[in-house]
């Protein structure tokens, strides 16, 4: 008897669905999605699967290397200037 009951619950949607059960399902969904909307949206850097973190990391690497290259360039220019003067 008990086994039958549980099988009935379990197979609720595997048997041809009654209109009533579909209605209950949709009602549950509406209720839950309304609750989910109250949550705060993720901040900018964590949006789209945190892709901006990757962008940030690449930018840090590139900017640091560029700054270093600029410094090196200026150092070489200074040496060239000195060489010219001599």
């Amino acid at each position: 008897m008990k086994l039958n009951k549980s099988c009935h619950i379990y197979g609720l949607f595997q048997q041809p669905m009654s209109i009533k059960s579909i209605f209950a399902f949709v009602l549950l969904l509406v209720f839950q999605s309304a609750r989910a909307e109250g949550e705060a949206a993720p901040d900018f850097i964590r949006s789209i699967g945190k892709i901006y973190v990757v962008a940030g990391v690449c930018l840090i690497i590139l900017i640091t290397l560029f700054i270093y290259m600029i410094q090196l360039d200026r150092k070489i220019s200074r040496i060239e200037k000195r060489q010219k003067n001599e």
Binding site: G49, K50, V53, V54
Partner: peptide, 15 residues
């Protein structure tokens, strides 16, 4: 937890 940041493996780890 990583999501797209798994790509950082190619940029952060080689440093």
């Amino acid at each position: 937890i990583l999501a797209e940041t798994i790509r950082n493996t190619y940029f952060h780890v080689p440093m």
